[in-house]
Structure formats: C-alpha cells, structure tokens
Design a protein around this nucleic acid. Structure first.
Lengths: 230, 230
DNA sequence: CAGCACACGTGAGCC
DNA sequence: TGGCTCACGTGTGCT
C-alpha cells in the first residue's frame, strides 16, 4: 500500500474558521490510485517515509535520554515524562545546594574565575606587610610554578599557600610578605599591581585552556543558575 | 491540497492513503452542518477537541520543564531537545562526581543510612576498651540526646563525637570507652549490642521521619546512580 | 466512557 | 533542495 496502514486516519477536520475545506487543487490528490505522471508521487512517498523514519529516530534519541535520566534520579518508576523532568530539576537543585553547603567553611574552588588581592589588616607596622591573594581558575600543571615566578618578580615572599582542586578547577590562597619599605600609598599600588599580575596569569590560563579537553570559558556555577543567553 | 497556508488553527486535513477520503459513510461526515441524529457527532467532536487540548497541555508541561532545565544547565542556547537532555545528564553526573570528590577526606553524611560499630584496634589491654561507632541517617533535633541516652544504658562513655550535617542528613562518629572488665568475647558481644542499639535508634528515626517534610525512606545517593526498580 | 499518557505520521520552518 | 527539529492532532492502551 501507498502509505501507512492508517487506522482511522482519514480526513480530519478541526472545526474552525471557514472555507478552505474544499480547496484541493486536484494534482496533489493523485495517490496510488491515480495514474498521472508517475514519478513525483513515488518521490513524495519516499520523502514522506524518510521523514517519518527520521522523526522516529529523533523520538528514540529523546526517549533514550529520558530513560537515562530516569535511572539517575531518585527512584522514579512509573512516572510520566513531565514528572521525570520535574524530578530531574529538583535533583539538580538539590545537588547544587548540597555542593554550596559543603563548600561553606572549606575553600573549594568555585566554577567562576576569581582574582582577589588584599593587604592583610593585621600587617605589622614596619617595612614589611602581608598580602593575601586568591586565584581561582581552571587547573593547569604548571600554574603554580608560573604563579610563584610572577610573585617573585613582584618581590613577594610566599609565606603560606593553601591549594585546593576540584574537577579540574583550582583555588590558590596565597599569604605573602612584601619586604619593601612601604607607606600606605605604596601598599595600595602594590596590591593593585599584584592584582593585575594575577589577572594576567588568569588570562593566560584562559587563553590556553582551550587546548585542554574540559575547555569551557564560561561555565555555569554549581551554585548559580544564571544563564546568560545572548 | 486542502491544507491551505493556515497557520495552525484552521482546518486540517491529513491526506489519507487510499480510501477514506471519499468514503464517508454518511453519518461520520456530519460536521456541524449536518442534522441527522445530531447527538453522537457533536459528542465525538467535543471529545476530539478535549483530547487535542489535553495533549497540548501535556506538551506544554513537558516543554516548560525542558525550558527550566535549559536555564539550569551549562549554557545551552539553541540546542535541540535531545542535546539539552544529554547536557543535563552530563551535568548531573558532574555534580555527583564533584560531590563525591569533595566528600573525600571529609566526613560528609551520605544519602544512605549507615550503622557501623567497631572495637578500636589500638585498645589498651586493660579492663577498658574503645569503640568507634558511626551512625548516618536523617537528622532530627533530639537525635543526639537519644543517642547519648542509648549509649549511657550500654555503659559507654562518650569520649569524642564528630557530627556533620548536610541537607537534613546527619553523620555521627562516636568514640566511646567501655570500662567493663572484658575479655575478647565480651568485646564482640558488646560491639554487637551497640550495633543493635544503634540500629534500633535508626529504625526509630526512620519510623518517625515521615512526619517531617523531607521524608524519603529510600533516597538515591549523590554518589550512586543505582535505581532499584521493582 | 472519561481521563490520561504515549507513539505515531505529518505540515511547517530553518539552515 | 534535503535534512533536520518542532508542534500538532490523532490512534491506542491503560486505569
């Protein structure tokens, strides 16, 4: 047969506007019964078949992903599609909130880049003072060496470093001492240049990180659900 | 053919294969114009209309959840449905692996209940020995008091407790001393009774936890993706 | 049979 | 043009 077995398929009319019911410009109606010029019919029939098969594959892709999600999310046996998706949404939210909760109190690298430099409040009032710097970015093996080198050229002595990594991200917290004779203004200038230096380190990381598989310049935070479209 | 440009609303005619185009066994064709035995036609028409509207609502539910997911997952603008779902799957996996990664080294309460009791290996070879007990379950305000009371009746002295909570779950790690004169057999018996006592505490928690909103006796682990069907 | 959920084939529109 | 996605209305089966 031409097309599908078409159960009840026949003509369907949804009530509505008006007219148009009878239009049929004659040629399209051919179907298999008609003779007409044989070629085009077979073609459109094939096209239609391809179409429905493609659509079928598409549906299978979507449904297989849905099936996967069903297994990943709190046991949802016999839930309809919408319920599964709702459950997935809640699950993702819960995972995120757990992540942020765990991170409280620990210095866990976040998913957003961060450069922070601050002069320590309790700096001794002598020729030297302390700076606390934070750099959070994609992890790279040579990053810490590069960081030390950068700080060396700024004549900063690394006192203590707290480094944590998570899923390819790294967060460095660096306590450093500057031994220059420095008045208040110098300290601000110093702080600013340290900030700038770290920012350029970050930029270098972000310009080369594309060579690595997990390259995602802009990633969504575990904590935020912002989605900058544009 | 009939299918005028008509956006969505208007008359829709699905070309049928053979037959049915012209068949119309009279009664079925009625439309609104027909008189005949008016009732059944209008009824099925209404049913059909309801059906398609319900289906539309269903689609809207699913699609709105999909839209929500799109905003929660790493920026997926202009991805098709299947791609969004695939992305969600990866995102959930990543969140889970991050969670398990973070938890390494810390005593974070897991999503599965746990009772563990062990005699400390480095127990002094005297009349007293140490027991390390772990209880992980849903959190309840009075849990710790109840725990202490339970241990008191077992004549266990609490030496140290490490308690961590996360998203309504709690994990207690208790180091306790038993001052009874005890040979090896007594220790095993003791350990077993402590285990049993803690299990009954857990059972009590699980039997009353339903009064609390976040009651979920069986929850899927952040770490495991097992889904016991049945 | 109403109500619901799903799979299907198809028309429209977009590269 | 053909391949693709999406929304739609509908057939079907389950409760």
């Amino acid at each position: 047969m031409g097309t599908v077995p078409v159960g009840v398929g026949g003509v369907r009319v949804t009530e509505s506007s008006s007219a148009s019911l009878v239009v049929d410009d004659g040629e399209r109606v051919g179907k298999k019964g008609g003779v007409g010029r044989g070629a085009p019919e077979a073609k459109t029939a094939m096209a239609l078949k391809n179409h429905s098969e493609a659509e079928r594959r598409r549906r299978e892709r979507i449904n297989s992903h849905l099936a996967t999600l069903r297994t990943m999310v709190p046991c949802s046996d016999k839930m309809d599609k919408a319920a599964i998706l709702a459950q997935v949404i809640n699950h993702v939210k819960e995972l995120k909130s757990k992540a942020v909760e765990i991170s409280k109190g620990y210095n866990i690298p976040s998913d957003t880049d961060e450069v922070r430099v601050e002069a320590e409040a309790n700096a001794v009032n002598s020729g030297s003072f302390y700076i606390r710097a934070t750099l959070c970015c994609e992890d790279r093996p040579e990053l810490f060496a590069e960081l030390r080198q950068t700080l060396d050229t700024l004549q900063l002595k690394l006192i203590r470093a707290e480094i944590s990594t998570l899923s390819g991200r790294v967060k460095n917290i660096l306590i450093m001492r500057c031994d220059d004779n420095a008045n208040d203004i110098d300290r601000h200038i110093y702080t600013a240049s340290v900030h700038q230096a770290l920012k350029s380190v970050l930029d270098r990381v972000n310009s080369t990180v594309d060579f690595y598989p997990r390259a995602k310049r802009r990633r969504i935070s575990m904590f935020e659900s912002s989605c900058s479209s544009s």
